[in-house]
């Protein structure tokens, strides 16, 4: 209720308090975005051109498929498709692992909850490169993973340098991004709603399907966003765990940047950003339809 009085004279003060954030946001978000757009639509002499954008859609190259035949493919569309595919697979796996995990966490005692949240966060405090290198050693043909498989008699499996290795790396990195939003929605869920469902005849599975799942959808959608988007644009994981064989869109941007093709790098980034924004808007609409009224 105190907010009512202070609310009236707030605007001036509010603007003053917001100023640093506004400055920060413009300097480090809006200005760089403007630069990306500017670079994307100019050539090396900064004259307007659509070439960079068109190149993304039209550039072709020769690849050799498994049968040894050479094929002409759209280079960047293929890379984009591969990024999207791996990102979707990773997101689905994150959801399959993360949802039950979040549910178990939210049902646990508050002490267990705190411990589990901390355990999930700890890997995120470690540098991304170190984590990726760790997975390289683990997944090597002679690594810990194969050692374990050997011990239980499943023999060594060649995994490093395959798409599976890339997916494992991405799932490991982005799983917390799936668990945390779902967990926070579930933790806030009114326990009485679950009891009401039981009261009305639901067994545990029905409570989960009819009440918990629909009410947790906002968390699920934000988890999907938070895993899908960074994993589409991921790079490095693919280079290290995929032995460089699975060139992803993030790698393409990095490559162009290193090769000093700033304008084309900007064009790829720009196109990807547009695609992601459209995707996110679509997701939000989908989420909005499912969670009318919210929790």
């Amino acid at each position: 209720m105190t907010g009512r009085d202070s609310g009236r004279k707030a605007p001036a003060l509010e603007r003053l308090l917001l100023a640093p954030y506004t400055a920060w946001a413009s300097l480090f978000i809006l200005v760089p975005l403007a630069f990306i757009a500017y670079y994307a639509f100019t050539d090396n002499n900064f004259n307007f051109t659509l070439d960079n954008v068109l190149k993304f859609f039209t550039a072709t190259s020769q690849v050799t498929n498994e049968a040894g035949q050479t094929q002409e493919v759209f280079t960047y569309l293929l890379i984009f498709w591969r990024s999207l595919k791996l990102a979707i697979i990773s997101t689905i796996i994150c959801l399959l692992i993360g949802y039950p995990m979040a549910y178990i966490m939210a049902r646990a005692s508050s002490r267990v909850q705190k411990t589990m949240v901390t355990l999930i966060m700890i890997p995120m405090w470690m540098n991304f490169l170190i984590r990726t290198y760790a997975w390289m050693t683990i997944l090597q043909d002679t690594g810990i993973f194969n050692g374990l498989l050997d011990m239980i008699g499943l023999g060594p499996v060649h995994i490093i340098g395959t798409e599976a290795a890339v997916v494992i790396g991405m799932v490991y990195d982005y799983l917390p991004h799936m668990v945390i939003p779902i967990y926070s929605v579930m933790a806030k869920m009114d326990n009485r709603l679950l009891e009401a469902a039981q009261d009305l005849g639901c067994n545990n599975a029905q409570v989960l399907r009819r009440v918990v799942w629909p009410l947790s959808l906002p968390g699920v959608f934000s988890g999907i966003n938070m895993v899908l988007i960074p994993s589409i644009s991921t790079f490095y994981i693919s280079q290290k765990l995929g032995n460089g064989k699975f060139f992803l869109i993030g790698d393409a941007i990095e490559g162009q940047y290193i090769a000093n093709n700033l304008h084309f790098a900007a064009a790829i980034a720009f196109i990807m950003m547009i695609i992601l924004l459209v995707g996110m808007a679509f997701m939000r609409k989908l989420a909005g339809r499912h969670v009318q009224g919210g929790v």
Partner: peptide, 20 residues
């Protein structure tokens, strides 16, 4: 006997209606 098998229904404090 678990709640869903009892011939009893409950009106909860602050209703606990399903918001979805």
């Amino acid at each position: 006997v678990p709640p869903h098998q009892r011939q009893v229904n409950t009106v909860f404090q602050r209703y606990a209606l399903f918001p979805h």
